[in-house]
Design a protein around this nucleic acid. Structure first.
Lengths: 199, 199
DNA sequence: CTTACTAGACCGACTGGTCGGTCTAGTAAG
DNA sequence: CTTACTAGACCGACCAGTCGGTCTAGTAAG
């Protein structure tokens, strides 16, 4: 049935990795399929063997990018430590994730822009945001119940928190020097937490 | 000398208005020059009479969009009232500005995306961000000096504040229902202010 | 007032380059 | 010998930008 060892998983990743690099560099539209071909080290025939269109590559990337890791999220809700410790940890993890893919984060904006006129993409991102948001609400709620936070509106507080985070990404991408995650970013978030805590 | 009344200012605005509508609907790349031609009610020849390329239209729009109104900004620094009142007012003004151009805000993302591979656009946006940021720093500094705020790191606090704002825009564009500016948005910002105030 | 002329605003059919995508002819593993 | 996969030349739709031309309003000479 399979005369040759199945490379499809490897190849697909190879193509998607290359595509991310190219898209991050040039944006979805400026990026040429031939650029992806070259970056991947494969040939056009191979590329179209695995993905039937540019569109399909973009969708595949968005899935890869916005697939929420539900497990790690759930575990955070049950973990030990104060809520604000865990919130800070959550943020630190996310920041680290960002930094690891820093060469390629630019695609985020491509997707945000795409989301505004392509319902499919929008849906992915929306769900992603909502998942993160729900986690934050749950955490803050926990903080309030434990008496760690003031009895604020958990929804509003969560909105504020993920807004700070999302906003920092925007600023960071536009002006990397303005946002030193290690200092400014964390300070910003600590400030928010201070607003939550009992006084 | 001038055989016909000079309509160039009118025409340019007419074209830019049309372009913003089209760009907001379809994005920079999906948008066809012919769409702008149609939306503007002019002809292709006329369009190219006033702007020599698509690129030039995009640049013109970014100037129009990110031109900071320095005066209103400065006046806020000298206005009366507590700092947090003025901060909230500032935010309210900006939100209102956004809502007024709500049909067309989508272009923001187009510009953010474009900024990442076009230094010109990036520069515009960067300057815009920096102006706003500096204003916030000054205001917060004022709050600290007057004893209204705790002696926090004004830079970090300002970063946090404009991040919330920028982040809310992102969330709002992706999922308009999730951000009810009037309630959630303001609450989020009030929360930040609480973090600043003396306890 | 008429007529001849000018400037420059405006028009839209046309073109040439640019990619997304296809196709045919392979190659090598099993 | 079959089948999974690779290669890259090639095709043609599409669209930014061009170009030859028209039309209008003003000017001024007679």
């Amino acid at each position: 049935m399979a005369p040759r060892t199945d490379l499809s998983a490897v190849r697909k990743n190879q193509i998607l990795d290359a595509a991310m690099v190219v898209f991050a560099r040039s944006g979805f539209h400026e990026a040429r399929m031939d650029d992806i071909v070259q970056e991947s080290g494969l040939s056009k025939g191979t590329l179209y063997w695995y993905f039937k269109s540019k569109e399909e590559i973009i969708t595949a990337i968005s899935q890869r990018l916005f697939a929420t890791d539900i497990e790690s999220v759930e575990s955070l809700l049950k973990a030990e430590g104060t809520v604000s410790e865990r919130l800070q940890q959550l943020i630190r993890d996310r920041v680290q994730g960002l930094q690891e893919m820093s060469g390629v984060v630019a695609i985020l904006f491509e997707f945000y822009a795409a989301a505004l006129h392509q319902d499919g993409v929008r849906q992915f991102i929306k769900t992603y945001f909502q998942n993160f948001h729900e986690l934050l609400v749950a955490l803050i709620q926990q903080g309030i119940e434990r008496g760690e936070f003031r009895p604020v509106d958990a929804l509003a507080a969560a909105t504020a928190l993920d807004a700070v985070f999302e906003g920092l990404i925007v600023r960071w991408l536009i002006d990397p020097d303005a946002v030193q995650w290690a200092s400014l970013g964390e300070a910003a978030i600590r400030l928010m937490l201070d607003g939550l805590k009992h006084r």
